[in-house]
Amino acid sequence: MKHLFKGIAVGAALLSAQPALSADRELLNTSYDIARELFASYNEVFKEHWQEKTGETVEIKQSHAGSSKQAQAIIQGLKADVATFNQVTDINILHDRGGLIPENWADRLPNNSSPYYSTMAFLVREGNPKNIQNWDDLVREDVDLVMPNPKTSGNARYTYLAALGYAQETYGDDQEKIDQFMSDLLSRVKVFDSGGRGATTTFVERGIGDVLLTFESEVLNIADRFDNGEYQPVTPKVSFLAEFPVTWIDDYVEQNGTQELAKEYLEYLYSEEAQRLLAGFNYRVHNDVVKEENADRFPALQLKTIDEIAGGWENAMETHFASGGKLDQLQRRR
């Protein structure tokens, strides 16, 4: 019993210790699971910026989990001021299911409310032993792939769409060949982790597979971490424009009285300073000056949009990813 009370005391003390940091303002940013370091850096930059601008101090709280899970939490009452996701559909749902933001949320900020973007790329092992150059190399019998599960991870849905874009480009209107290619590709996947980072861990820590399919930002990030060339990035010539959408959540910022703060937090992501920081985290950005600086790191590619590949997100989810959709048909055992 004594330990019990001691536990309570320690717990209560630690809990109450936190708000003692008392800043003038507070902001909660819900974000996707792998953006922790990115926003930890950006928050410092923004705090300084906000203090310069208004003289107020801000404390920014971070919540990280898979972006679908985050969207569900926000709909069910997690009072986040801003959402910074890696899935357009997960922000759409905040309108469709939650009625928390207006339908035209994407028009409220430049570039479809996507301050940075990336594309899908490959990570291969030292010296590229299987000689992987493009999407068609991935369906070879001798190649094992690692990617997350398209049913649970947006990252994997992007990879699926990127491959589909390539297949459409290559086979034109021949739907049968496109399906065959997609089916072959999916059958080469050795492990479907539930999330993007899980797939990375499987590939890097567990040594499974020849190719990891994930965001270019993630691929470059790993290649940087192991600068001995243990892993090499390969960016295919045709890929998918993966947007990282952001929005403030109208209902909650109103309740929290954080309208301006939330808006500025997102708008400042487009500033040159923030864009440089984002590029440092291996994301592609829109600012011309920063683009110029990083031209050699991010080669020009043919990036297809969701409209080109699948006629918009709504259609993509319905035809490809819903239960019984194209993905389910392709993964059916042959």
């Binding site: 019990l4 009370f5 536990g7 309570i8 320690v10 717990g11 209560a12 003390a13 630690l14 809990l15 210790a17 936190q18």
Partner: peptide, 15 residues
């Protein structure tokens, strides 16, 4: 540290 505190706190209420 905060996670430890919260975890103990939750257990202390639950038990």
């Amino acid at each position: 540290l905060h996670a430890i505190g919260l975890t103990l706190f939750v257990a202390a209420l639950t038990v």
